[in-house]
Computed example of a mutant assay.
Amino acid sequence: MPDMQPDKNEYKQYVEKMSPKPTYLKNCIMAFLVGGLICCIGQGINDIYMKIINLDELAAASATSMSLIFLGAFLTGLGVYDLIGKRAGAGSIIPITGFANSIVSPAMEFKKEGYVTGVGANLFKIAGPVLVYGISSSIICGLLYYFIKLIF
């Protein structure tokens, strides 16, 4: 009985032939458009806070950040943000809304396990490393800046 196993080169060619071809250009365009749209929405919210509600620039920026975090978390809770992410790819991970999504998603996934062992234990599962390394690198950069300014 002959050996029915294909050799490695035949298998590699078969996999390459059957694998879907990535659409890099389409993905880049969608990421650019959706990411830009999220940023335009944020700018619109900021303009509303400054021109209609008459907040100063700092207060409007803070209120805009809170609004975008709320929208990202709310849309994640409704399941809409995941649909946006499927179409937009990297465009949906704009830092502020993407961060809200990365916190709410694991919390929703583990809600059945209870508030302490489910939600509380898994709330920062994805966002935790980002916070740890972000805060650590900002401290290191701040110390380097301080010592460089001290020397010069």
Score class of each variant (00 low, 15 high):
residue 135 I to V: 14
residue 60 A to H: 02
residue 97 T to P: 08
residue 130 V to K: 04
residue 38 I to G: 08
residue 50 M to E: 10
residue 90 A to N: 10
residue 94 I to Q: 14
residue 138 S to R: 09
residue 59 A to C: 13
residue 96 I to K: 12
residue 59 A to T: 14
residue 16 E to Q: 13
residue 73 A to V: 08
residue 28 C to G: 03
residue 73 A to S: 11
residue 68 L to T: 02
residue 31 A to E: 09
residue 80 V to M: 06
residue 97 T to S: 15
residue 46 N to M: 11
residue 137 S to D: 08
residue 72 G to T: 09
residue 112 K to T: 13
residue 110 F to M: 04
residue 101 N to C: 11
residue 120 G to T: 03
residue 84 I to W: 09
residue 141 C to P: 04
residue 148 I to Y: 09
residue 88 A to I: 01
residue 142 G to K: 03
residue 144 L to R: 09
residue 33 L to S: 11
residue 98 G to H: 05
residue 80 V to G: 10
residue 96 I to P: 12
residue 43 Q to D: 13
residue 118 G to P: 10
residue 48 I to H: 13
residue 148 I to N: 05
residue 63 A to R: 05
residue 21 K to C: 01
residue 137 S to K: 05
residue 69 I to K: 06
residue 106 P to T: 03
residue 145 Y to S: 05
residue 27 N to Y: 00
residue 44 G to E: 10
residue 32 F to I: 10
residue 108 M to Q: 14
residue 54 N to P: 02
residue 29 I to C: 08
residue 26 K to E: 06
residue 131 L to C: 14
residue 77 G to R: 07
residue 139 I to M: 05
residue 112 K to A: 11
residue 112 K to N: 13
residue 55 L to H: 13
residue 80 V to Y: 03
residue 102 S to E: 02
residue 128 G to Q: 04
residue 119 V to T: 07
residue 64 T to E: 15
residue 72 G to W: 09
residue 15 V to C: 01
residue 55 L to W: 07
residue 62 S to T: 12
residue 58 L to F: 12
residue 22 P to E: 02
residue 148 I to L: 11
residue 15 V to P: 01
residue 76 T to D: 12
residue 36 G to L: 01
residue 77 G to I: 04
residue 142 G to M: 08
residue 41 I to P: 08
residue 22 P to V: 00
residue 94 I to M: 13
residue 28 C to M: 04
residue 41 I to D: 09
residue 109 E to I: 03
residue 108 M to T: 06
residue 24 Y to N: 11
residue 122 N to C: 10
residue 60 A to W: 03
residue 115 Y to L: 09
residue 135 I to A: 08
residue 32 F to P: 00
residue 86 K to T: 13
residue 93 I to N: 06
residue 130 V to I: 12
residue 147 F to H: 07
residue 39 C to S: 12
residue 117 T to Y: 15
residue 94 I to R: 04
residue 50 M to R: 15
residue 132 V to G: 07
residue 109 E to R: 04
residue 129 P to Q: 07
residue 81 Y to I: 03
residue 69 I to D: 06
residue 97 T to I: 13
residue 72 G to E: 06
residue 100 A to T: 07
residue 103 I to Q: 09
residue 46 N to Y: 09
residue 86 K to D: 11
residue 18 M to S: 06
residue 52 I to G: 01
residue 138 S to V: 07
residue 99 F to Y: 15
residue 92 S to Q: 08
residue 146 Y to G: 00
residue 57 E to R: 15
residue 54 N to L: 08
residue 124 F to D: 02
residue 26 K to R: 08
residue 112 K to G: 10
residue 70 F to G: 14
residue 148 I to C: 04
residue 108 M to I: 15
residue 114 G to M: 12
residue 58 L to Y: 13
residue 110 F to H: 12
residue 63 A to D: 06
residue 70 F to P: 14
residue 27 N to W: 02
residue 103 I to R: 11
residue 50 M to H: 10
residue 37 L to I: 13
residue 125 K to G: 03
residue 122 N to L: 05
residue 80 V to W: 05
residue 143 L to F: 14
residue 49 Y to L: 15
residue 97 T to N: 02
residue 69 I to V: 07
residue 14 Y to M: 02
residue 124 F to A: 01
residue 134 G to D: 00
residue 46 N to D: 08
residue 93 I to V: 11
residue 41 I to F: 14
residue 104 V to N: 00
residue 38 I to M: 08
residue 92 S to V: 04
residue 144 L to C: 12
residue 89 G to A: 04
